[in-house]
Design a protein around this nucleic acid. Structure first.
Lengths: 310, 310
DNA sequence: CCATAGCCATAAGTATAGGTGATCGACACG
DNA sequence: CGTGTCGATCACCTATACTTATGGCTATGG
């Protein structure tokens, strides 16, 4: 159909003429000469196959024909749609609106993420932030590649060529002791000898994920861990430590350090630490909001994780 | 904003590339060269200020960025809107869809209009036809100029430079007698002597409009009418005639000639007849459906009203 | 009733935008 | 490590859309 020849310019002219009631008015509204408007409307009428305006001649205003009214309705709707598209694109570009979905895992969720989300909210109040929590990297990566989440935290070391990964910092494993307990008395220094856990009944998580890493590292130093209580809930683990069930090895970020009932010590020799990674899909432009969030995470973690790693 | 530079061409390219997954595919889908598509997308990206596609390079398909997805949604909505506009305009042009509002008055509504509407429905099944009935020309004209009705029947003679008026035919005044009554016996010819009504108790409408025309015409022939019953409802008037209350002068079109209880006679000398007019606003392009209806009315009335006027 | 002013259509000329074709560079694949 | 495919870019050219100038039409004022 001849509708292919229609461009926005024509609809803008239609709207302007309808508003102004004259070609001349529309012309200097749009910054064109009168002839240009005349030609645009003529072209539009040719494309549509019917007259859109009645031109009474003389000083009387031009008026819409029924066809003109019909097309005008659609034209303003289209213009409005374009305007909202413009608005939404601006929001998207600034990362201040829309919806950002962040993939996390437990230890990040507890300590680090709240601060980051808060900071993000300050910068982008109208942005809807959604969280998806998984226990394993694999699930997070899967969702990331499927586009269900826009940016995700991962535990390192981790490599995947399909992702653009940044390291935020390291999250050392520490030993968590009941404050004033026997072990805490025994080793009063800043660090705790890893071999001091030998034969000690401990609290830990269920097998898999972090726990496997921890156990392997312990065994490498000659300690075969002996768990008397297991839970995948960090709060529960920490509660058990506080209650005197035994010490626990935890990633520092997972520890609620404000709890006076527990004491945190670095390990000596240290266990090979986990790193905190943040990732977006490679090969696809990330959402601006995601990029922005990554920037915030990096700067913030330079402060927080450096302290933690010391 | 740079959004002013956006034209449909760009959105069409966006949609085509998104569909095809490649610039080349989009190019020969739209009948352009690859370079053209590349430039159109580049222009669009410049206008919105962000990348819309990720180009992985090599044989891998290009994919939308978040911004691209966002804009694409709007683009397809806009394209759809334009398509429905095209459809609706075609319907409007053929006069086969949309809404046509016809202004009428009683006598036209009774006999003539049903046939015309029926014929119109046959030609344009999807057209919504609405009727507005008024007693006086003035009200019809007012609505017509206000755009509340698209086409109207009027009673002539009538002149108004703001309207485009066509004469459909004449609607002679006839006398309606009870079948087998005294007057019907007395004057058995095809015609009825107007002066035969002298002193006879008659049935009529309330004062105003047609009735005034009738009375004036009667007095011009020396008859001063004497009404014993008045109603503005044609059926009621006809019922009274049938019941023997007396004869009535009615426009032929208002008479239900299928009623065996009444007999219709021409008058001699005839009263100056009413003409049936049909009108649309002048100086504004009428709805195609209205024009079409006018055509139908004219051809149909050449048959029907000719017979009536004989 | 004629002159005038305002408005749109049209024609001719010009400039710019947009399209083509060729070439280059990047990336995946065998 | 070549080879093929795809997008970007460049130079050139055509087509298109804008401008200026003019003419015709309609209502209006003297």
């Amino acid at each position: 159909m001849a509708f292919d020849g229609i461009e926005f310019r024509h609809l803008r002219a239609l709207i302007a003429v309808a508003d102004e009631g004259s070609f001349i008015g529309a012309a200097d509204l749009l910054g064109f000469s009168q002839a240009a408007i005349s030609q645009q409307i003529a072209g539009l009428e040719r494309a549509v196959g019917q007259r859109l305006f009645d031109r009474p001649g003389g000083p009387r205003p031009v008026t819409l024909t029924p066809a003109g009214r019909l097309l005008l309705k659609h034209a303003v709707a289209i213009a409005a749609r374009l305007a909202t598209a413009e608005q939404e694109l601006a929001d998207l570009a600034s990362g201040t609106a829309g919806r950002l979905t962040i993939g996390t895992y437990q230890s990040v969720s507890v300590q680090l993420l709240p601060a980051l989300v808060r900071e993000m909210r300050d910068v982008a109040p109208d942005l809807g932030i959604h969280l998806v929590e998984h226990d394993y990297n694999g699930e997070l990566v899967e969702d990331l590649l499927a586009g269900e989440i826009d940016v995700a935290f991962l535990t390192g070391p981790y490599e995947d060529s399909r992702l653009a990964i940044s390291e935020l910092g390291i999250d050392p494993f520490v030993v968590v002791l009941p404050t004033g307990g026997r072990l805490a008395q025994l080793h009063r220094g800043k660090t705790f000898p890893t071999r001091g856990l030998l034969g000690v009944p401990m609290v830990g998580q269920h097998q898999g994920g972090d726990q496997s890493t921890i156990d392997k590292a312990l065994r490498a130093t000659g300690v075969t861990p002996n768990y008397v209580f297991r839970s995948n809930d960090n709060g529960a683990v920490q509660g058990m430590v506080r209650a005197g069930m035994g010490p626990a090895i935890m990633p520092l970020l997972a520890v609620d350090t404000s709890d006076p009932g527990i004491t945190v010590r670095s390990l000596d020799p240290p266990l090979e630490p986990r790193t905190i990674l943040i990732a977006v899909p490679a090969d696809t432009t990330p959402m601006p909001a995601a990029s922005r969030f990554m920037r915030i995470a990096k700067t913030e973690c330079r402060k927080r994780l450096a302290r933690a790693a010391r």
